[in-house]
Design a protein around this nucleic acid. Structure first.
Lengths: 254, 254
DNA sequence: ATAAACCCTTACGTTGCGTGAATGTCAAAG
DNA sequence: CTTTGACATTCACGCAACGTAAGGGTTTAT
């Protein structure tokens, strides 16, 4: 039995366009062309198309399908397994998304209490942080590898009390820093107080404190636009001021 | 604080290209352009971008995000809920795929027994058939709605013995039909034997038999290219021959 | 003979950018 | 003062798997 594009299309439940596309990418070529250039398919092509559609239903890419059905030596089961791994990964990712959407809806509806709300703020921050990984990587290579990762871990394992503590401390740092900015003197008492609070705050995230690392971080606040943006949000120059205060505090500058 | 494309890109962990694209599709326009045509973003744009990236992390399309954040009257929670419905649908679909791939691997590895193996053939056929829903719909509307579904159901509930019986019967039909084709006479004894076997075979699927329905089905074998392809696979004209034999058998034609 | 129903190729649209190419601008360094 | 390098800009193609015309030949039936 011989078929033209539409005939085979109806037979298989696909469009004529699809068959032409399959011809174009070389996954299913017609048996021959007639005198007017019509594509003519025979029984062999029907069978091959069946195979293609079968794998397509499993969500495989045409490229993959092509490999499987063109080379008989191709390890089909292995290909299926690889495909399955991909599907499973996709599924996990999807579940993560769904969970996040859930949380967001709950948050928007105000169905959650304050402490959860605060954690949600952290969750949101984490989403944004994830986004910055690429850029952050450079910084980490420059200033020491794993402090960001470590702090993520630590945040996750924090108790509610600890979380509240670190949040309050962060606010104190910001307020003191604001007041210090008004004095204009990074060596002054208020600025040094801010630097000290900043050290305390930092110790929530770092298990070992060193003056060098503290100073390095301060420098990063100026070099890394993300941090600069954070500190300069209310008052430009704040990041630089904080760096100077910390450099003096750590004795790296007088 | 003001940013250029790269500045804001680093801040947010995205590329400059992405920002230009966002400008192009109107989801995030720069605050202004400087004298050389550079895009300049301000604090407001930074905040808006944060929002965009937040929803993007939830797997939303940029079009959707645009709707949410541009019109303040837009029902955000409702949009999130709709989005979640989509995600859940995707997840179910994915799970179906994974299950099917599972089955296929098991089959290819020969890890399953014979009776399951035969059911796999049905499963495979069903996957292919699912594809033909649109086309099949017309046919079902024309020739009676639910016999396809019904037969699917019946196959599922068949015992192994019944399954063997119907398979053997189908073979008999085919062989007798082949022999009848050689006589060339649809009114002849062999052809009428084939028609009778076909009726018996049919009764495995239909709970009530009628000559009219039988004749109608025979006509469908000619009208529906999928069935025509099946019967004409070995010998063109077989579907038509079978129809004639059945029409005579049922007395609709002499 | 003409209309209906096929067939063909070419090519743009879909989503969210990555990745050039060709060109303009602006700072610091020679 | 000019060169260099790091920015910026606007096209425009590419990715997957087709859908959807546009524009034009072929076959078939009336």
């Amino acid at each position: 039995m011989e078929y033209t594009v539409q005939g085979l299309g109806q037979l298989a439940g696909i469009s004529a366009r699809t068959l032409r596309y399959y011809d174009e990418i070389g996954i299913l070529k017609p048996a021959r062309m007639n005198s007017s250039g019509y594509r003519i398919y025979g029984q062999k092509e029907v069978d091959r198309l069946q195979q293609i559609l079968f794998y397509r239903e499993l969500g495989m890419s045409l490229d993959n399908i092509k490999e499987i059905i063109t080379s008989p030596s191709f390890d089909e089961v292995e290909a299926l397994r690889e495909h399955q791994v991909k599907l499973l990964a996709k599924k996990e990712q999807l579940e993560q998304l769904i969970s996040n959407v859930d949380k967001t809806i709950a948050h928007k509806e105000g169905r959650i209490n304050m402490s959860d709300k605060e954690k949600f703020a952290g969750f949101k921050q984490k989403l944004i942080d994830d986004n910055e990984k690429k850029y952050g990587k450079e910084i980490r290579e420059k200033y020491g590898d794993d402090w960001v990762n470590k702090s993520n871990e630590q945040v996750k394992n924090m108790t509610q009390d600890q979380y509240d503590g670190v949040t309050r401390l962060a606010n104190e740092v910001n307020e003191t820093l604001k007041a210090a900015m008004e004095t204009g003197d990074p060596a002054g008492e208020v600025a040094q107080k801010a630097a000290d609070l900043h050290r305390k705050w930092l110790c929530f995230y770092w298990d070992t404190y060193s003056k060098e690392a503290h100073a390095g971080l301060a420098q990063m606040y100026v070099d890394d636009p993300r941090f600069t943006a954070y500190y300069d949000k209310e008052q430009p120059g704040t990041a630089e001021f904080l760096r100077d205060a910390i450099l003096i505090y750590t004795g790296m500058k007088e």
